[in-house]
């Protein structure tokens, strides 16, 4: 399964994701420069964390005008997997591939911590290696991670079971409905504020995030 990791100027978790997919999971991995437009060789697109284009104007707002984005949209139209982590999640909402928005954290500070999450769905390609309602602990690191959507959108998200991860215990950033990660209706696009790639190496103390990636590999193998 070939991973393509989009590199915008200002992306800074691109190598962290590649470390997991290429070095730990031994999957072919290509860094895709934001000026590239050919994603035909890629199975899974990952939009990594960071501060694309400095996050000027609004987080993820400028990235949507990058040349590579049309190819990402095409990838999405084909129903292929797209994972947006942190800034990647923000970009996916700016693109309209996922509903809602990520706004400034409730206490106005950047938060770096490790927080418990509940896995709400295990029937997605991303989460099938987790147990239903399993509690996992993943790192978060964001200043604008508070999930927001209007009432109708939120109700629709809940009704159609698009909430994949929810903060368990204290809500760190004030996200509505404790939302930490959502997918689209089709289930091929996942956006999440926590960093699964930072919890995929035993040596660093936690492998709670690895299942997001190994789940995908299991899909490909079956």
């Amino acid at each position: 399964m070939k991973f393509g990791i989009i590199v915008f100027p200002g992306s800074n978790c691109d190598r962290d994701v590649a470390y997991v997919t290429r070095d730990i999971l031994n999957q072919p991995t290509r860094m895709v420069w934001h000026g590239d437009t050919d994603l035909s060789d890629i199975d899974v697109v990952v939009i990594p964390g960071g501060f694309s284009y400095g996050d000027y104007l609004r987080c993820g707002a400028i990235a949507q005008f990058s040349p590579v984005i049309n190819s990402v949209l095409e990838h999405s139209n084909q129903g292929k997997p797209i994972l947006g982590i942190c800034n990647g999640f923000q970009i996916l909402t700016e693109l309209g591939l996922l509903p809602g928005a990520l706004i400034r954290n409730r206490d106005l500070h950047f938060i770096c911590d490790r927080v418990p999450l509940t896995v709400e769905r295990t029937d997605t390609i991303w989460t099938q290696n987790y147990d239903q309602k399993e509690t996992i602990v993943l790192p978060i690191a964001h200043g604008e991670g508070r999930y927001y959507a209007d009432d109708d959108t939120l109700a629709h998200l809940e009704d159609s079971g698009q909430v994949v991860f929810r903060y368990a215990g204290n809500n760190p950033n004030g996200s509505l409905n404790e939302i930490a990660g959502i997918c689209n209706e089709n289930g091929n696009i996942l956006g999440m504020m926590p960093h699964p790639e930072r919890a995929s190496d035993r040596l660093l103390g936690s492998e709670d995030g690895a299942s997001v990636f190994t789940g995908l590999l299991a899909v490909a193998a079956s």
Binding site: A18, V20, F110, C112, P139, G205
Partner: peptide, 29 residues
């Protein structure tokens, strides 16, 4: 908590846990 202390995926001892920070030395590609 306001500092990203885990980016680059090499932080072995995070702030507050030990008497010194420890970071793995892993050259990039």
């Amino acid at each position: 908590r306001q500092y990203d202390h885990q980016v680059q995926n090499n932080t072995l001892v995070v702030p507050g846990d030990g008497d010194a920070a420890v970071v793995r030395l892993r050259p990039t590609e």
